[in-house]
Amino acid sequence: MDTGPETHRLPEESFGSAGWGSDAFSLPELTPLPPAEPADEGRFMERELRPERRLRLWQLVPIVGLAVLGSLMFAFPLAFESGGPLVGMLGLLLTAASAGWGAMAARRAGYAWPGLPRQGSGRRAGWRALLVYTALALSLLALGLWRVSGISG
């Protein structure tokens, strides 16, 4: 049987004498493997199969880029009085979005905020830590809105 121009020939009897559809086709005889020897205790190494959970550079670059763009859009109308409140609000929105994106990426990588349990640990978050983070976020939002509303349009 010819298998192609640059390959070798297969023997004619390799597929059985009666062809594919008959009972004459038989599989080659299989031999069992010898039993595995037990590993020495000194050579046994336990290793985690999953990769280490951490943020990679390709995950951080778009988050940091969005944060820089947003903070510059927020800062320039405040510093140079150009662009108006619309650009300042858009910058504030982009900065807040990048902060949320970064927090979600860090949580998926296994990091946790101080005072909060890691994801999947089964523990509950302390109400004091939640109260502090909520107050901090609301105060930053209020300060940002106050500064943008102060821009003369």
Results as ranks from 00 to 15, higher is better:
Met1Ile: 07
Val148Pro: 01
Pro85Ala: 14
Leu93Tyr: 10
Gly115Arg: 07
Arg54Tyr: 02
Ser17Tyr: 09
Val61Asp: 11
Leu57Val: 13
Phe25Tyr: 13
Val68Phe: 13
Leu138Val: 10
Ser26Lys: 11
Val61Cys: 12
Glu46Cys: 00
Ala18Met: 08
Trp20Pro: 03
Gly110Thr: 02
Leu78Ile: 12
Leu116Met: 04
Arg53Ile: 05
Val87Pro: 04
Leu93Ile: 12
Leu49Cys: 02
Gly21Met: 05
Phe80Gly: 05
Ala97Phe: 11
Ala129Asn: 01
Ala137His: 02
Gly144Gln: 06
Gly122Ala: 02
Leu143Asn: 00
Arg124Ile: 08
Leu33Asp: 13
Gly65Trp: 14
Leu136Phe: 12
Ser17Ala: 11
Leu55Trp: 09
Met89Gly: 01
Leu141Glu: 01
Thr134Glu: 02
Leu92Met: 14
Glu37Gln: 14
Arg53Gln: 15
Asp40Cys: 04
Ala103Asn: 12
Arg118Asp: 00
Leu136Asp: 05
Gly150Asn: 02
Pro62Cys: 10
Ser26Glu: 15
Gly122Glu: 03
Ser98Thr: 11
Arg53His: 14
Phe80Thr: 07
Ser121Met: 05
Pro38Ala: 12
Ser121Phe: 03
Trp101Phe: 04
Phe15Thr: 11
Phe74Leu: 14
Arg53Trp: 08
Arg147Asn: 05
Trp146Asp: 06
Gly115Lys: 09
Gly120His: 02
Leu33Pro: 12
Leu60Cys: 15
Leu10His: 14
Leu141Ser: 02
Leu145Ser: 06
Pro5Val: 04
Gly70Leu: 11
Trp113Gln: 07
Ala129Arg: 00
Ala109Gly: 03
Gln59Asn: 15
Gly120Leu: 00
Arg53Met: 13
Leu138His: 02
Gly83Ala: 15
Pro51Asn: 07
Arg108Gln: 15
Glu52Pro: 01
Thr31Cys: 04
Leu136Lys: 06
Glu52Asp: 05
Phe25Leu: 15
Ser26Val: 13
Thr7Tyr: 07
Trp58Leu: 13
Val61Met: 13
